[in-house]
């Protein structure tokens, strides 16, 4: 079983400490952006477990994000759940939804699975807008929820510990927990099995691995991660509308996963930074053509870092510590 080296432990500790200290030096709206990065990182991590580690291509993870978000909102508005209980509830609901969707998906491979998940991504906003459900979902205009309050308020170093700071720290705590869980999941036997199913499905099966169970379970776990991210997003934004869960959300999660780097846990953070900030950068370059600039920036990212940011960092590291490494042949 792979363990963290001392250096990596220190790096992770410093990163968490810096994230905890962030509210001291940043205004509320920056904290909102930081929360968004964490939320998308969780969602991308979920997608990476499914697509990066297990090779099941999902072009529709925005659907699970939406299910998580609406679960949280409906439980708060109609069942009177306290905000923090919606996170485990959304996790459970999305796990079940993911498992249910994962079962028929077992029969579909590659591009067929892409179509099925893409259809899911298109169907969810349509269903949310559907008249018969609008009593709960609010239809096309959407619904709002109450902002979660801070459990206690005080000042620290001249910074008010308010609801925004609390929400950020709440999100951070769940992010750290989920990243820790994901890392534990992939570093051992389960992770190796998932990768084996991705790379050599027939061989894995021949060696007695029940690929169906692994594939549908990881579908559920992946939906769980992305659904928790959706629920956190609902709490952070406090407003939901079907059009926030347009198919482009799914595409951007996919983009975040690939430019972050597939098949590694921390890479989701880099991917999230890209999808949160790249649109702003594109907008500041050209007001009239933000979409085109965004597209060009994406293409350039792929061009210079074909294995994502994580892959590029990995290469830099190997460059610094030169050793003979067989890159293999085909």
């Amino acid at each position: 079983m792979k363990k963290l080296s001392a250096n990596q432990k220190i790096l992770a500790g410093v990163a968490i400490a810096a994230a905890v200290a962030l509210p001291l030096v940043t205004p509320d709206f920056r904290l909102f952006q930081a929360s968004q990065v964490l939320i998308y990182a969780i969602a991308i991590l979920g997608l990476n477990l499914l697509t990066g580690y297990n090779g099941q291509l999902s072009v529709g993870h925005g659907a699970f994000f939406a299910v998580g978000a609406y679960s949280a909102a409906l439980l708060m508005n109609f069942a009177g759940f306290p905000y923090w209980t919606t996170i485990p509830a959304a996790a459970l609901i999305c796990l079940v939804v993911g498992l249910l969707f994962g079962l028929p998906a077992l029969k579909l491979d590659g591009h067929y699975l892409a179509l099925a998940t893409f259809a899911l991504a298109l169907a969810v906003p349509q269903l949310l807008k559907y008249k018969a459900f609008s009593k709960w979902t609010g239809g096309a205009p959407g619904i709002s929820i109450d902002k979660p309050p801070a459990p206690f308020e005080f000042d620290i170093f001249g910074r008010a510990f308010n609801a925004d700071v609390w929400l950020y720290l709440f999100t951070l705590g769940i992010t750290v927990l989920l990243f820790f869980c994901a890392w534990n999941l992939v570093r051992g036997r389960i992770g190796r099995t998932l990768v084996a199913i991705r790379d050599q499905p027939m061989a894995a099966q021949a060696m007695g691995v029940n690929t169906a169970i692994y594939k549908s379970l990881i579908f559920g776990v992946s939906a769980l991660f992305t659904g928790v991210a959706g629920a956190l997003n609902a709490l952070t934004v406090q407003y939901l509308a079907p059009d926030s869960f347009h198919m482009f959300l799914s595409v951007f999660l996919l983009v975040g996963m690939v430019v972050g780097g597939m098949g590694a846990v921390p890479s989701a953070l880099f991917g999230a930074v890209v999808i949160v900030f790249l649109p702003n950068i594109a907008g500041s370059i050209s007001k009239s053509l933000p979409g085109a600039i965004y597209g060009v920036l994406l293409i350039l990212l792929v061009y210079f870092m074909p294995k994502g940011i994580w892959g590029a960092l990995d290469r830099l590291r190997q460059f610094r510590l030169p050793r003979h490494r067989d890159t293999g042949s085909s």
Partner: peptide
């Protein structure tokens, strides 16, 4: 997958243009 992202990039470029 990186090539797929290039396709999405092209999608955005043409759509926005």
């Amino acid at each position: 997958m990186s090539q797929v992202i290039v396709f999405f990039g092209l999608f955005l470029v043409f759509n926005s243009a």
